[in-house]
């Protein structure tokens, strides 16, 4: 393994975060804070608790995921798309680094950013609402798993995309709506029967449900199912990335 190479890629990608600090950390934190003000404090104070959890606290895990999912996808996809777009990818292709090492560098950096972002939003949430963490280690495990999975997904997106438009469309038009509909602001148990069934096809439901279970020990589908499906998504992304590298897709002609 060329660990020095992995470290160089990882550091380079993290440095990009500091250069774009506002875009990658400050802006999601700000928008999440707005959600807390509007839904958590203003509207939430007039809402009854859900499964015994005050509404303001109920939405915290979902809001953290909303930011983490979109940022994981955007960061990882931009990370690999940018060198493809500017042509600097030549250097990575000509370097003595294997596909796995490139992946560790890019996805590792994107996932690190997302975990940090999740922790920052968590801390921000504490300012607005008070809540307890029932399973702190499980919540961290879910956060890391989800960050890595969606960073992998973003990496694939960055390889597939042939324009900036596609990079933005997926987080905005796919990830965000699915997260909104995935039980961020409500429990899917509150949905009428046909919609509840339909909601179960939304993979993000399981992520939010599992993450919320780790916070408050309440769940609609159960932590075991959530964890299994999160791992399944991770494996699917890993499988796709391996396939992509084997075929040299979009990187080597």
């Amino acid at each position: 393994m060329n660990w020095i190479g992995v470290a160089a890629l990882y550091k380079f990608e993290l440095a990009r975060t500091w250069r774009t600090l506002f875009q990658s950390i400050a802006s999601p934190v700000l928008s999440t804070a707005l959600y807390f003000v509007v839904f958590g404090s203003a509207i939430g104070s007039r809402m009854p608790p859900i499964d015994g959890v005050p509404y303001g606290a109920f939405i915290v895990p979902g809001l953290i995921l909303l930011a983490v999912l979109t940022e994981s996808v955007s960061n990882a996809s931009f990370g690999i798309y940018l060198p493809r777009f500017t042509g600097t990818i030549y250097e990575i292709l000509s370097a003595p680094v294997s596909a796995i090492e490139v992946l560790l560098g890019y996805v590792g950096a994107a996932a690190t950013k997302s975990v940090l972002l999740g922790l920052i939003i968590f801390a921000t949430a504490r300012i607005f609402v008070s809540f307890e963490l029932v399973h702190p280690w499980w919540s961290l495990a879910f956060l890391v798993l989800i960050s890595v999975t969606f960073a992998l997904f973003g990496f694939l997106l960055g390889l597939w995309a042939d324009g900036f438009e596609k990079l933005q469309i997926v987080p905005l038009m796919v990830i965000s709506p699915l997260t909104f509909l995935g039980g961020t602001f409500y429990s899917i148990n509150m949905l009428p029967t046909p919609w509840r069934k339909i909601a179960l096809f939304n993979p993000i439901v399981y992520l939010v449900d599992g993450f919320r279970w780790a916070f408050y020990d309440i769940a609609s589908v159960g932590p075991a199912i959530s964890l299994s499906l999160t791992l399944a998504m991770l494996l699917i992304c890993v499988g796709l990335v391996i396939y992509v590298f084997k075929t040299g897709y979009r990187l080597r002609t």
């Binding site: 380079f12 440095a15 250069r19 060198p83 500017t86 990575i92 003595p96």
Partner: peptide, 27 residues
């Protein structure tokens, strides 16, 4: 390899990008 096109990480410093290249090649 010095490529034909002037492709470099535009927002990085000269020192940063040259140091990065060395690391990428495992030195």
């Amino acid at each position: 390899l010095v490529p034909q096109e002037l492709s470099a990480n535009m927002f990085e410093s000269v020192w940063g990008t040259v140091t990065f290249s060395r690391g990428l090649f495992g030195k």
